[in-house]
Design a protein around this nucleic acid. Structure first.
Lengths: 132, 132
DNA sequence: ATAATACCCAGGAAATTGATAGGGATTAAA
DNA sequence: TTTAATCCCTATCAATTTCCTGGGTATTAT
């Protein structure tokens, strides 16, 4: 039960964007340089975050990426749910579990899922960047 | 961030053992039949649980597996930590993170790790089998 | 002895993840 | 209007992990 590097790296990129919030857009090469990630891989992560409306981008010369909301209004939970494609610990949580009623373990996963989200939604990007 | 089927299946097997706690040992073929798992795969899961002292086994004819403690004294957390080889969400938690001091995200993982364990340690196998 | 059982080890199929690559579309600046 | 910077899309590959199967050995009740 590990977080993928997609999640870890993407969160790092979001921190970078948060650090420069309000200073305009950051270019892909710049973010890649700061986070030590390949431009091509980082690009994929940013495109996911953009699809989920956490960041936005301007194209063309001197374009780049920027946060769509202020760092204090973005939670780590939102970011990870975007990158990890949901934080459901088991598939039956996200889908159509037939045995929901009879299955004893369903309750465990559901409880855990709520706790995880509660925990991560309680930490804002601002807190993260400023070190609590 | 998904739980492996090792964890899910192993927990199922533990439930089966809990249902028959005090009635002597259950054979591998029997447990496999109840949980609808292949004997060979289940065998590996049980060997992990045995290594971690959650269950024990007697060999020879009419032998089998049984819980080493009462269902109310075994937590779901213990079981999953055994099967999943720890519930650390990222590697730096289990190891020797160099950047621990400077890394901003370390605190997030550590907080989440504690919450996950707290949640799962709060549910006993007995509660699980009896439906809370 | 024999049958039923747990135990051990090796390996392979399948899925997921991590990362690379190329080319295209869009836009700002010169 | 050209040019260059940049985001955007999609395919593919290598590596890793996970899931599962199979064969053979050791042990014990009957």
């Amino acid at each position: 039960m590990k977080l993928s590097s997609k999640g870890r790296y993407g969160l790092k990129a979001m921190c970078e964007l948060a650090k420069h919030y309000g200073e305009g857009a950051l270019s892909l090469p710049y973010i890649a340089g700061e986070t030590l990630l390949s431009e091509k891989y980082l690009e994929q992560l940013l495109s996911v975050l953009k699809k989920d409306n956490l960041i936005d981008a301007t194209r063309g010369a001197s374009g780049g990426y920027f946060l769509k909301k202020a760092p204090e209004e973005i939670s780590v939970g939102e970011i990870l749910r975007s990158l990890e494609n949901g934080l459901e610990i088991v598939d039956c949580l996200s889908g159509d579990c037939q045995n929901k009623a009879t299955c004893h373990t369903y309750g465990v996963w559901s409880r855990l899922y709520k706790e995880i989200n509660k925990c991560l939604d309680g930490i804002s990007l601002k807190q993260l960047v400023e070190g609590e």
